[in-house]
């Protein structure tokens, strides 16, 4: 699938085929996409544990439920638990020097191993690592980028996925044997979409110039209609929901599983 279509087709999928497992190779693709994400300091912010729904006993599955995930947890065959490792700064001094050696961080841009040791590590990263709010802010952003790559890879592999809050972190920690330094990020439910992959149409978004600006925050970024039209042709901008048949689709899916209408 082309990149723009992947972006355009991504939806939060809430109806999965509960009977169709996800091939391990597709999960590997998602994890590799995550592993290739942009990350400052070449640090390992993001961790993930892949669990097959049917490998968990009913008691554990029930313990994972929170008010918004109940049906999804039953329908999705694969769970990926994402975490931020709050010890992410460990090893970054050496990794930054490695990037200096590889000329990724070159002298032309002011970088040297001495600069890493004496300034970046000694005066920035090491002190910063002691301030929880800054550390959490940075870890959350970097983990989000990583998780986003995995989400888009899922779409590219023909899968559906949705991010949820991780219900009952204490149970998750015990069952998955989560290290103390890992902070819960998202629970990603993965499977083959049972609903149409367009899931009723592209979600409504505010116009581009509502959120993006040019020059100053007082000048909205006005989109070029020709570019907008090209993005429609190439699949990034798709027909907005709800499709006229969406209510019937959801009603039929609900009846299939006996769920509330």
């Amino acid at each position: 699938m082309e990149f723009k279509e992947v972006i355009g087709l991504r939806r939060s999928i809430r109806w999965f085929k509960p009977w169709q497992p996800v091939e391990r190779e597709k999960i590997q693709v998602m994890l590799e996409a995550a592993n290739r994400s942009s990350r400052s300091m070449n640090a390992d912010y993001c961790k993930a544990v892949v669990v097959n729904r049917d490998d968990l006993d009913q008691e554990t599955r029930d313990a994972l439920r929170n008010p918004t995930t109940t049906v999804d947890l039953d329908l999705a065959p694969t769970y990926i638990f994402w975490f931020t490792d709050m010890d992410y700064e460990v090893g970054t001094q050496d990794r930054l020097k490695e990037l200096v050696q590889h000329k990724v961080l070159p002298p032309s841009h002011g970088w040297s191993e001495a600069y890493v040791d004496e300034v970046v590590w000694g005066q920035v990263i090491e002190p910063m690592s002691k301030v929880f709010a800054i550390k959490q802010w940075m870890g959350s952003i970097e983990s989000g980028i990583c998780i986003c790559n995995a989400l888009n890879a899922a779409v590219d592999e023909g899968l559906g996925a949705c991010l949820h809050a991780m219900g009952n972190p204490a149970v998750v920690k015990e069952v998955l044997k989560v290290p103390d330094s890992w902070f819960p990020a998202w629970l990603m439910l993965v499977g083959y979409p049972l609903e149409d992959r367009e899931a009723g149409g592209q979600r409504p978004r505010r116009p581009l110039d509502t959120n993006f600006f040019e020059g100053t925050c007082e000048t909205p970024f006005v989109p070029d209609p020709e570019v907008t039209e090209r993005l429609r042709r190439e699949g990034m901008i798709q027909e907005a929901g709800p499709f006229p048949w969406r209510a019937d689709e959801v009603r039929m899916l609900s009846r299939m599983f006996g769920l509330p209408e």
Binding site: P67, T70, V71, D74, L75, M256, F257, G258, L259, P260
Partner: peptide, 25 residues
Amino acid sequence: GTVMGNRIRSFLIHNGVFMQGVPSF
């Protein structure tokens, strides 16, 4: 049984009570 339970839940859900039933499959 699932259908009956979720029929009652439907009544509550549409009146603003967030609850979910277990799907039957």
